[in-house]
């Protein structure tokens, strides 16, 4: 059974691109363009991983991340923060959320993402395997 990835980004082109990449690699993507929709989809879609943008107009990705971690049903879902806000090597999640009772996300990736690295990370976080994932649908 294919693994499911939720992508939350207010930039619809970015969300579409990230969704296409995961789909091409055998995952089932779903897109939300804001936090409100994202949280709603999480409940029904039950993703295996969430890709989350930080800077969104109404409610930030950090707020969604905090809500995911505070909810028993979703706190186990690995999260990749994907944002253009900071460089990967300089990213410090505590600058966005100083509350140390909330654990840090599994990964931060800077836009534009390196496709191979992005897929490898999704595979590692969902299956623990960085070589084989859900398979590539080009061959399907």
């Amino acid at each position: 059974m294919s693994l499911k990835v939720l992508i939350v980004d207010d930039e619809s082109d970015v969300a579409r691109y990230l969704a296409m990449i995961v789909q091409a690699n055998g995952f089932i993507p779903k897109v939300a363009n804001n936090v409100e929709d994202g949280l709603e989809i999480v409940n029904d879609f039950k993703p295996d991983l969430v890709c989350l943008d930080i800077m969104m107009p109404k409610e930030s990705g950090v707020s969604m991340y905090q809500q995911l971690r505070e909810n028993k049903a979703t706190r186990h879902i690995p999260v990749i923060i994907i944002s253009g806000a900071e460089q990967e090597e300089k990213f410090d999640f505590r600058n966005y959320l100083p509350d140390e009772s909330v654990p840090e996300p599994e990964c931060y990736m800077e836009k534009p993402v390196d496709v191979d690295k992005y897929i490898a990370m999704i595979k590692r976080l969902t299956t623990g395997d960085s070589i084989e994932g859900g398979g590539n649908d080009d061959e399907a």
Binding site: V14, R16, K111, P112
Partner: peptide, 25 residues
């Protein structure tokens, strides 16, 4: 400015990626 440019870059990369996959498939 950097944030906006990165999003645009990602949109451009996305366009190329989707077009390339379309050509391949």
């Amino acid at each position: 400015l950097a944030h906006s440019i990165k999003n645009i870059l990602m949109g451009l990369e996305g366009g190329m990626y989707i077009a390339a996959r379309g050509l391949k498939l």
